[in-house]
């Protein structure tokens, strides 16, 4: 569970460049390897997000974040990411009494129930958490604004 390699991102980038004759995307047809590489980049983030979401110490340490000070991981209240409704954002979030994005609410849950430290909304840890939450909800239907 502990091998998140950013090397993969680099491999993907290299493949992308190698397979195209110029540095511009979309001018050549995609190769199967390229598509695979794109997906690998995504799934690598999902896996990192899954690990962070489940409180994996190695992933937490690697990202240098404090998502929780209670011993509790997100998954302890959100198994399979249940009770998180990424398909309903953005929406008025009554816990915060404001119009909020998924990232706002991830941070709120880090600060309140988990007593952790907010993370920057475009940090790598945030993107990974978001990737995992969306991935686990990939069959949900968009329903923005719903309470």
């Amino acid at each position: 569970m502990k091998n998140y390699r950013y090397a993969l991102t680099a491999i993907a980038a290299a493949l992308l460049v190698a397979a195209s004759t110029s540095t511009w995307a979309h001018k050549e047809k995609h190769t199967a390897e390229q598509l695979q590489a794109f997906e690998d980049v995504f799934l690598e983030q999902v896996k990192l997000g899954d690990a962070l979401f489940h409180g994996d110490p190695a992933a937490v340490k690697q990202m240098g974040v404090t998502l929780s000070e209670t011993g509790m991981a997100c998954a302890m209240c959100h198994p399979f990411a249940a009770d998180i409704h990424p398909h309903e954002f953005p929406k008025f979030q009554e816990h915060m009494n404001e119009f909020a994005t998924l990232r706002d609410m991830i941070n709120w849950c880090i600060e309140k129930p988990s007593q952790g430290e907010k993370i920057s909304s475009d940090s790598q840890a945030m993107k990974a958490l978001e990737a995992y939450i969306y991935w686990s909800n990939r069959n949900s239907k968009l329903d923005p604004g719903r309470h």
Binding site: V46, A82, H85, S136, S140, R146
Partner: peptide
């Protein structure tokens, strides 16, 4: 309700383990 608010939601098992 904790069940009624799950309209439109389909969840998947986790990926890492």
């Amino acid at each position: 309700s904790g069940t009624g608010d799950n309209r439109n939601q389909v969840l998947s098992p986790r990926i890492v383990d």
